[in-house]
């Protein structure tokens, strides 16, 4: 369709232009712990506080179940497909979970190249481990359930894994996959003498060690514990206890989100 007065050879932008304005809160957060010393208190949050969680189900229409979780600057979308016929050529008496984690190229401060690297797979393994014992895979012979986790924005790997686990379990419940209970997960960072729950990226950098705990509060069962860094046994047990207490709060949020629609 030819437009009168339309010149293809010129830049046809508007006559006025404006600088893009960014309000990403980066400047604020990057100097939050600038002159922080070991032994000082956590800034802006109490040690046992987690970031507020927004959880919504069923936003990917073509998936059997889906969930979107947002805790401040961690944003994760999760979709569940299946049960599908297994592609592999061997017979499996029980069903299998296949978890795939992908980071958006813009998910972190440094651009993530969109290829499967070792980090994606280790995170997928952690999510798989947290969920595997909760799903009644014995009811699904020869089938496979595909879980796709897309990290849109990542603020702290450990809390990202925890949020991904919560989103994946919510999606599974939404998809009508039989499971023993909902899995929720929480991360704790050992900083000096304190345990800071749900640490963001900067707090994770200050921590000497990390503990990630996934459990089913409805059954009082822990499905997975993952520890990195240097943590004394007493501190590990303390953070495990704190994480489990907080998990029952997160479980409430998941139950609420599932009841909503």
């Amino acid at each position: 369709m030819a437009q009168s007065g339309f010149d293809r050879r010129r830049v046809n932008g508007p006559s006025e232009s404006f600088q893009p304005t960014f309000d990403d809160g980066l400047e604020e957060s990057s100097d939050l712990y600038d002159n922080w010393k070991l032994g000082e208190a956590r800034r802006k949050r109490h040690p046992g506080d987690i970031r507020p969680i927004f959880l919504q189900t069923g936003f990917i229409k073509q998936a059997n179940g889906s969930a979107y979780i947002e805790t401040e600057r961690t944003k994760i979308a999760c979709a569940v497909y299946g049960p599908r016929q297994s592609k592999s050529s061997s017979y499996h008496e029980t069903g299998r979970l296949s978890v795939e984690v992908k980071f958006a190229p813009f998910s972190s401060l440094v651009r993530k190249v969109p290829i499967r690297d070792a980090e994606d797979r280790s995170i997928a393994n952690l999510v798989h481990q947290a969920l595997a014992s909760s799903v009644r895979l014995d009811t699904l012979p020869k089938s496979v359930i595909d879980i796709f986790v897309t990290v849109i924005e990542c603020d702290g790997i450990e809390s990202c894994v925890a949020a991904a686990t919560v989103a994946a379990s919510t999606s599974l419940a939404k998809a009508g996959v039989e499971m023993l209970g909902l899995v929720v997960s929480c991360a704790g960072a050992v900083v000096g003498e304190d345990v800071w729950l749900d640490p963001n990226e900067e707090e994770a950098r200050l921590a000497s060690g990390m503990l990630l705990c996934a459990c089913m509060p409805a059954l009082g069962v822990t499905t997975s514990v993952w520890q990195t860094g240097r943590v004394l046994p007493a501190k590990a047990l303390l953070s495990l206890q704190l994480c489990q207490d907080r998990c029952s709060d997160i479980h409430q949020i998941v139950a609420l989100a599932l009841h909503e629609d």
Partner: peptide
């Protein structure tokens, strides 16, 4: 959703 709707793991 009705109030007697259960979530996985609920007795």
């Amino acid at each position: 959703m009705p109030s007697d709707c259960l979530i996985p793991g609920q007795p």
